[in-house]
Design a protein around this nucleic acid. Sequence first.
DNA 1: ATAGCATGCAAGGGA
DNA 2: CCCTTGCATGCTATG
Length: 515
Amino acid sequence: MDGNVRAVLKKVTVNEDSLSQAIQALGGGEKGLKELIGHIMLWVKQHNGEMDYGKTSLSQKLEKLHPPQMNHALEFASGKGISGTVYNPNLASEGYDQRNEKSPCPFVRVQSSEDLQDMNHLFQCIKSRRLMGEGGLDINFPRDVHSGSGTFVDVRGSVPDVLHFPSGGMGPRSPNHIGPAMLQGMPCELDIQRPLIPCAQAGLSFSGEHDGLSRIFTATTRAARRNQISRQRQSGLQSNSTFTPSNTVTAVSSECGLWSVAPPAWDMSVGVFLSRTQSPSCGPDISDPKMLTFLLQKELRPSDVGNLGRIILPKKEAEAHLPILALREGILLQMEDFDSGHCWKIRYRFWPNNKSRMYLLENTGEFVKSHRLEEGDLLVLYKIQEGNYVLRAQKKVHSESSGAPGSQQKNAYSLARDFPEASKTEEPLKEKDIVGFAEWSCGKVNEERNILVRDDDPFFKDDQKHKISSSFSPEPLQSLERFPSLSIDFPLDEMMPWDDPDEFNTDSELAELVG
DNA sequence: ATAGCATGCAAGGGA
DNA sequence: CCCTTGCATGCTATG
């Protein structure tokens, strides 16, 4: 099992009496509940990797809770925050910091959107007291639509509260499957409403009477959402005949009160909701147009491309965008090769170093070999969803200003190999050709793969565009053509709702949600 | 001065 | 003996 809390939480069942008792012990009310979430999340993280997440264990743990020594309730990310902070009661009492053993801190940073969503779900489940078992509060997460039976929870309090789907699957061919066609037939309109503020989205969203769930669209401005809904409707129409799991929309019915799939994840790094569709194979199905979120890049050093098979990651970006590591052994991440689709099992770990840490990827030897990466090449890491990542190798292209004349020609030939059309000329490419192909490549990739970028995404840094060629994939064109077109039709800054005071009333939204 | 990172090197394990 | 693993050291960038 990897470090995904969700995987553990799926199996957790807690005695309701223990929950109530714990909430009271932690101050009662919503405050107590938030503290409780912190305890549960910590418990889950501590038991991550164990196969037996006993009901007894967590219940007993909760029954022994005492009021926190520090008055820090659960804190979620706010503003442009990329990470959240959750009060860790154990750290406060034991002086232990999971992130840095040598500097006690009573907080655990929660960096992944999954973690925050897990907490969000947990919060809503407990808050709404949806009893799904006998005398117990089942905090099972809605399962993936392809993974068999599932319990879908309406956290708003609408009817129906809980939708049970029989085992036998919710796959595309199942009569229980909820796809675009089914949603279209529902007597409700996928209306456009104000999205919640990021803070609420990260932690306490989806409340409200009849509009909460309908806010869940990846676009966050009115214009962008109109476009998105238009696209989703079109997608639904098109998918009637050839329906695939990946076509399942992450839309919800505002009147019917159900999720078509699991609640969408709020990706804090970019400020969008991501589809939670999932491929049954290794990692996500990247043959489907998915939102790739740029996480980090690393210009490879000799030690990175040596035979050690490990790549040092920049600490700041690693801590900001990759899962929190409690143990130096780290976690195994499935990383799909951007070009080939090959699934690399890469260990993400750290070494203690002085008073800090060094983060690194291990088992990268084959990846480096397959792309023939050399010093100066780029390793780019994207996130898809559900803790799955995409690893991209980017060969360095020497521009005239940075490379020797000889290397210029060499890389021109290299480009020609990567771009069959260019090779028709049978002549070395000129600088303008390189720039042209690089820009073509960037634009194509962006369009085809629906990559969502941050400001520091190398593919969208104007001053770097000319330095970046196509990937080293033997057949980049074919690779790209695998992905149906889905363009980004709104700029990144439009996706950042917190910059638009007219769109969002942060304070009132927050007040409404947290009371 | 400090943190981050590249890399050297020692220890341990396996062939 | 070679390879892998993990740590220590030193260089460089930054505040």
